[in-house]
């Protein structure tokens, strides 16, 4: 397509002596040599690479739908979304996926609560306040955090954050008892709990948020900052009232990406959040997320083809839908808040 008409567009400026006939002849021979097989081959190689991503997506959708279809023939959607308990391997089985969704969002919301504001503030510091030297040291270190394998974060949550939380709560217990006036109050944190998984995921997504936010703050044109300074704005007013609103589209995108990561995060929750699906908002309890459940069943000895096995496709489908919805939300938010600067 792009190489459609190279001959006409690339006729060289002919020398003064060239006649009309010789120019036409030249252009003919040009068109013959320009349509190299390599060009055509490259076109198809590029197109194929682009197509792979699309085919993969459709492949995943196809597998999820066909594999979970037998499950939904057995279990109605009303039961799937209506029941309060998730225990597909028990007798009688319960298929209330809401408890897994609840666990997922409890962990993701907890993580977002820490990582989004902290990431944004870190980005504002890096972009607006830090000296170039400080930024050159801090940004690579921050991005290093993103390279830590999630299994490390999982153990970090289980063996470091959880004991820390437990000790902290223990030492605070007398104060809590005094404040509430209840001497029998002994709040406890379970060994597996949503909170420490949330904190670990927050630490994991923090560099993502900070780095992406910083990128979008930095591309806000210098002219805009100067405009605000010239009106007598302080550094804080420039940062918060002009630069951040101008970068809102990128900030939103990074937020949603971070939440998507938190929703889809597997290793940390599988290790630290526990395996007891329930509908709760208490982050100190053990819960189970959708991803955690899929790991548990995939690793276990549930026979292939059984309804217990098919549940992971049903849960996977739900997870997939949630992620797609969040991506769509992200795209529309980015569009809504995007400002064009040339």
């Amino acid at each position: 397509m792009a190489m459609e008409n190279p001959a006409t567009s690339q006729i060289p400026v002919a020398g003064g002596a060239a006649t009309l006939g010789s120019v036409a002849k030249n252009s003919e021979s040009l068109s013959a040599t320009r349509k190299k097989p390599l060009e055509i081959a490259l076109f198809w190689i590029f197109a194929l690479c682009a197509a792979v991503t699309v085919f993969t997506t459709f492949g995943i959708i196809a597998v999820l739908v066909t594999e979970s279809a037998p499950f939904f023939r057995e279990v109605s959607l009303a039961r799937f979304f209506g029941e309060k308990e998730w225990a597909p391997l028990f007798n009688p089985p319960h298929y209330g996926v809401l408890s897994l969704i609840c666990g997922t969002f409890l962990v993701a919301a907890g993580a977002a609560l820490f990582s989004l504001p902290m990431g944004l503030l870190a980005a504002i510091y890096l972009s607006e306040y830090a000296s170039p030297r400080a930024r050159n040291i801090m940004k690579p270190v921050l991005e290093l955090l993103a390279g830590v394998p999630t299994v490390v974060y999982g153990y970090f949550a289980l063996l470091f954050i959880t004991p820390l939380l437990q000790n902290g709560l223990e030492s605070m217990t007398p104060t809590l008892q005094r404040v509430t006036g209840n001497p029998n109050l002994f709040p406890t944190i379970e060994v597996f709990n949503a909170l420490s998984a949330s904190i670990a995921i927050a630490i994991m997504t923090l560099p993502l948020v900070a780095s992406l936010c910083e990128d979008s703050l930095r591309v806000v044109p210098r002219a805009l900052r100067e405009g605000a300074y010239a009106l007598g704005a302080t550094k804080m007013e420039v940062s918060l009232k002009v630069v951040v609103p101008a970068a809102l589209s990128g900030i939103m995108a990074s937020f949603i990406l971070a939440v998507s990561r938190a929703v889809g995060e597997t290793m940390i929750v599988a290790l630290a959040a526990g395996a007891s699906p329930k509908i709760t908002l208490n982050p100190l309890e053990s819960i189970q997320t959708m991803t955690g459940y899929i790991v548990q069943v995939s690793m276990g000895d549930v026979p292939h083809g059984s309804i217990g096995y098919q549940t992971i496709f049903a849960v996977g489908l739900v997870l997939f839908c949630i992620t797609v919805l969040m991506n769509l939300a992200s795209i529309s938010l980015v569009k809504k808040y995007r400002h064009k600067y040339d």
Binding site: A223, E226, G227, A233, P245
Partner: peptide, 28 residues
């Protein structure tokens, strides 16, 4: 900050803030 409120500035390239016209003027 005080100085720049007394000495205003207009730049080479128009640099309106990404907000409503009204808010742009009311900013200062």
């Amino acid at each position: 900050v005080m100085l720049r409120q007394r000495v205003g500035m207009v730049f080479q390239k128009p640099n309106p803030f990404p907000m409503a016209i009204w808010d742009n003027i009311a900013y200062g």
